[in-house]
Design a protein around this nucleic acid. Structure first.
Lengths: 218, 218
DNA sequence: TGTACATCAGTGAACGCGCGTTCACTGATGTAC
DNA sequence: TGTACATCAGTGAACGCGCGTTCACTGATGTAC
């Protein structure tokens, strides 16, 4: 348990940043249950009333933690897209794999991101971050149609295209559901023989292939 | 807020049942956050130490609530299977629809069922109930292959068949992911124009059709 | 049919816990002149 | 260059809350004889 260093003895210097870092660490180590304002303050080495100056509410803190997680996921998706630009099937599989890897590495971050009841729905930072992830997903998943790229700005219009709408709903559901069931251990029985890593590797590949074929031909 | 009647003044008669009913009602009305032992006791009209005689732990109570929810889902899936026995595509769509309807009607029950961190993983009632749901899903989703029916007993063996394994992983992920994203409001932007009910009706149909085609041809 | 007794379910008061919130305070920083 | 002052971030003690747990108890039920 590390504390983000202070500049001076009294004022922290960047407590907001330290609190966010503490929150992320707590989430990784103890899950949602461990994520309280007091615990974050403790971990940041500060009295428990101090966070009030930076976050009005625990939900505001959670929102910004989630926003950071969305940013990370977006970055992972972008990276996977860059490294598999040509082949449409390889691209879908790469996106799939990036989503799965992220969720397996940060399971509680992932859970938080999709539990809006814990968060402040009006938080702008969160809204922008999740919109970016969403646009990136849409863009990646529908690129093999040969459509123009989707950005966070053009998303609202483009989503009215019924084919694109259907495709995104289908592909995102596939990937998201796989990850959810995987994280909650529902596939443990499936993976018994081969081991979990092999199972994931295999099923991501076959599911990605199926998904890709479907999006091209349908 | 109703209380399940007592037989006598002192002893309750069937407090275990009353506590489970209270828990289900609380879950529906207030979500996971409202589900505490004390709240259940209060609602069952009993002192807050009374539940100890029936549930060692809040996680045991939650487990049995989840088990009941699994039972309900199983029943809904069975019913949907019965009413669409012939056509494989109609059958998949019916299963899909049953899963979606259940989750929309009891969103917090649905969330609880797939959050094993709140429950007692060793609870036998829960294990059996979820195994039954799972077998029913597997059976419904793979029936169009013409395979023999899968039951909770034969599941562990049958799942070793790689084709069946792939099929179930794919189809279940699809349905489950769709429901998760729907429940958490991720599709709200998609449904803007047509309204949520119409969106659900449409996408369940098209996704089900795609799923069905994939499971037949692949 | 009646009595004695064991068993068990529910009571209610008490305890400790960690949480978020409030508030008067204090120490540091920066700005006006 | 120095001084006065406003601003603001962090302190620490106090409060109330609902939670789960414990424990001596009491009322009801059923069983043995």
């Amino acid at each position: 348990m590390t504390t983000i260093g202070r500049k001076s003895g009294y004022h922290h210097g960047d407590l907001k940043e330290a609190l966010l870092a503490a929150a992320e660490a707590l989430l990784a180590e103890e899950g949602m249950a461990g994520l309280t304002l007091r615990a974050c303050a403790r971990r940041a080495g500060v009295s428990h009333a101090a966070p009030k100056h930076h976050f009005a509410d625990v939900s505001e803190l959670l929102s910004e933690v989630a926003a950071r997680s969305f940013d990370r996921l977006t970055a992972a998706l972008e990276a996977s897209r860059a490294e598999s630009a040509q082949d449409p099937e390889a691209r879908i599989i790469a996106v799939f794999r990036a989503y799965v890897s992220f969720a397996r590495r940060y399971p509680d971050h992932f859970r938080l991101m999709f539990r809006w009841d814990h968060m402040a729905p009006d938080n702008v930072v969160l809204q922008q971050a999740s919109a970016k992830t969403f646009a990136e997903m849409t863009s990646s998943l529908t690129a093999q149609r040969g459509d123009a790229e989707v950005t966070a700005e053009t998303l609202q219009q483009r989503i009215r295209d019924p084919r694109l709408n259907d495709d995104v709903v289908f592909a995102w559901s596939q990937i998201h559901g796989y990850v959810q069931l995987l994280l909650e251990g529902q596939f443990d029985g499936f993976a018994e023989a081969e081991g979990m890593d092999a199972f994931v590797d295999r099923t991501v590949k076959t599911s990605g292939r199926r998904l890709s074929r479907l999006l091209q031909n349908d």
